[in-house]
Simulated scan of single mutants.
Amino acid sequence: MFRRLYHWTLSWARSRHAPAALGTVSFVESSVFPIPADVLFIPMCAARPERAMSYAFLATVTSVFGGIFGWFLGFYAFDLIARPLLEFYGKLHAFEALRAEVRADVWIILLLLVTSGLAHLPPMKVVTILSGVVGFNLWVFILSAIVARGARFYGLGWLLQRYGVAILAFIEKRLSWIAGGVVLLALVLWYFLKAHA
C-alpha cells in the first residue's frame, strides 16, 4: 500500500498540474490550511531535481503572499473569519495564550516568524494571523517572511537538486522500513499527546 502511494505521489509530482497545486498549497498553508507545502514540494523536487530552484521560487512567493493574506485576516477580520478558523482547527486556546505572551513584542514576533517559516513551529498560519492581530509592522513582516520561507524552500531545493536521485534511490530500497518508522513515530506521538491531554 505504501509503495503504491509513494509511486502515485511521485507520478503526480511530475504532472503538468503540480506547480499550480504547489502554489495553491503554499499560499493557503500560510493563512488557513494545516498541511505544509513540503508534502508537494519535496516529491516534486526529488522527481525533477533540475527544477528545484524554480519550485523554490514559486513556493516562496506564494507562501509570502499567503502570509500577507493571513496578516490581513488577523488585522481586519479576526472575529469574522480568523477566530472561527482557529476554533475549527482547535488552535484558538493556544493562539490566545500566545497572543497574551507576545503583546506586540517585536522580537518575539520576529522569532516566531523565523521559527514558523523555517520549521513550522508554531504553525505558519497562527503566526501570520497573530502578526495582524497585534498590528505587527507589515513591511517587517513581509521581509521576515521572505527571508524565512526563502531560506527553507531554497535550502530544501538545493539539497534535493544535489541529492534528489540518491534520495529517491534510498527511499526505493528502504520504503517498507521508512513507512514502518513513520507509523511507529505517529503512534508514539499519539500516545504522548493522549497521556498529556
Rank of each mutant, 00 (worst) to 15 (best):
F95A: 03
V61F: 08
S63C: 03
M1I: 15
A77N: 12
V127Q: 05
D105P: 06
H17D: 14
V147H: 01
R174F: 04
F88E: 13
F33M: 09
T24V: 13
I142E: 06
L113K: 01
F192N: 11
A77C: 14
I171G: 00
E96Y: 00
T128Y: 00
H93K: 11
L80N: 13
P84V: 08
L189R: 11
G164R: 02
R3T: 11
A52R: 01
L118A: 00
S54K: 13
L160G: 00
A18E: 07
F95V: 02
L168W: 01
H93R: 11
G157K: 05
G135Q: 08
L168I: 02
F88M: 15
L92I: 09
F27C: 03
A119G: 07
F2Q: 15
I68S: 05
T24S: 12
L22H: 08
G155I: 09
A20K: 15
G150K: 00
N137I: 14
I108E: 09
V140M: 15
W71C: 02
P49E: 04
W71R: 01
G164I: 00
Y154D: 06
I81L: 10
R16S: 15
V64T: 01
L121W: 12
R14D: 02
V102L: 07
I109G: 03
Y76V: 10
V64K: 01
G150I: 03
P43F: 01
F57D: 11
S30H: 02
F27Q: 04
I178G: 01
G70Y: 04
P123S: 06
F78W: 09
R174S: 04
L143H: 09
A166E: 09
W107F: 14
S144T: 12
A59F: 07
M1G: 13
V106I: 10
R14C: 00
H196F: 10
S131V: 00
A37C: 11
S144A: 11
R103F: 12
G66W: 02
A119H: 07
A46L: 00
Y6K: 11
S11V: 06
L113T: 01
W158D: 11
W158A: 09
